[in-house]
Computed example of a mutant assay.
Amino acid sequence: MNPTRNILLLLVAFFAITLSSCVSVKKEPGQVQEFTYGKRNGGSLITLKFEKGKEHNHPLFAIWLADSEGNFLQTLYVSESIGTGVFKHVSREAGRWMAGEIQRPAALPYWAYQRNIRNEAGTLLPTPQQPVPDAYTGATPSSSFVFYLNTDKPLNGVYTLFLELNQSWDWNEHWTNNKFPGDNEYKTSSQPALVYVTKLDTNSREEMELKPVGHSHYSGKDGKLYDNLNTLSTALKIANKITAVVKP
């Protein structure tokens, strides 16, 4: 066989193997998104890390700060559609939200009652006329994320951090789509909103994990925290892990 041809064949084989190897070890781009919220006016910084779970599918969020006894201090973040009262996508009849002004009392009711701000109609949800300020609202992240949350005032001591999340049409064997046939708000919420909580100490640099402690009312008719999580299934798998740390 021609020696030159042998060399060419070897070179072709080498480049083929090299190319194949490069393709097989190609790394996917990072999936963690980073966002900053709040007014940078000399307050403290809370870094919250959210690792999505296998049931994550564009849930709605609210994150807020309370004192050591759990008394509401301020909203740190809320999903834009709730914070403005305007949904950009989506029809209840079609199983998706219709774009426009929509009130969703079942979405994040524990936050709404803790915040306790009445709108022009006398209800507790933000509206286009009385929205949550832009500094604290944003689109729901599509994947795992890190939030840099600026507090309005400097923090000193022990505080409570809350996170509430809700994923629409997230049915299970207990929370079925015909459980409350006359309740239209329930039909858009299914498994009720889940509430996570942790303590934050400005004297500690330890990342604290937020744990689920209960759920909200299934259609937002009250502001109670229901501590029975036995009926929830996929809702508990929206988040895999949530941690936070505060920097004074």
Rank of each mutant, 00 (worst) to 15 (best):
N2R: 11
N2C: 02
N2D: 15
R5E: 11
R5P: 00
N6C: 05
I7K: 05
L8D: 04
L11D: 01
L11C: 12
A13L: 15
F15K: 01
T18L: 12
S20Q: 11
S21A: 15
C22P: 00
C22R: 13
C22A: 14
V23C: 13
S24T: 14
V25G: 06
V25M: 13
V25K: 15
K26N: 08
K27I: 11
P29E: 12
Q31F: 08
V32N: 08
Q33W: 02
F35R: 07
T36W: 02
G38M: 08
R40L: 12
N41K: 08
N41L: 06
L45C: 02
T47A: 03
L48G: 07
F50T: 01
E51F: 01
K52Q: 09
G53C: 06
G53H: 04
G53K: 05
E55Q: 11
H56G: 00
H56K: 03
N57I: 00
P59Q: 01
P59I: 04
L60W: 06
L60E: 10
F61W: 09
A62S: 15
I63H: 02
I63V: 15
W64T: 03
L65C: 08
A66G: 14
A66F: 07
D67I: 05
D67T: 04
S68N: 11
S68E: 12
E69W: 00
N71R: 13
F72H: 09
Q74W: 06
Y77W: 12
V78I: 15
V78R: 04
V78T: 14
S79V: 08
S79Q: 07
E80I: 10
S81M: 07
I82R: 05
G83Q: 10
G83F: 10
T84K: 14
G85E: 12
G85A: 10
G85R: 13
F87T: 11
K88W: 06
V90Y: 08
S91P: 00
R92N: 01
A94E: 12
G95R: 01
W97Y: 12
G100F: 11
E101V: 15
I102E: 08
Q103P: 01
R104W: 09
P105V: 05
P105W: 05
P105H: 09
A106K: 01
A106Y: 01
A107H: 02
L108E: 04
L108N: 06
L108C: 04
P109E: 01
Y110S: 04
W111Y: 14
A112Y: 03
A112V: 00
Q114W: 01
R115N: 08
N116L: 02
N119R: 09
G122I: 07
G122P: 13
T123S: 14
P126K: 13
P126Y: 11
T127I: 11
P128C: 12
P128H: 10
Q129N: 14
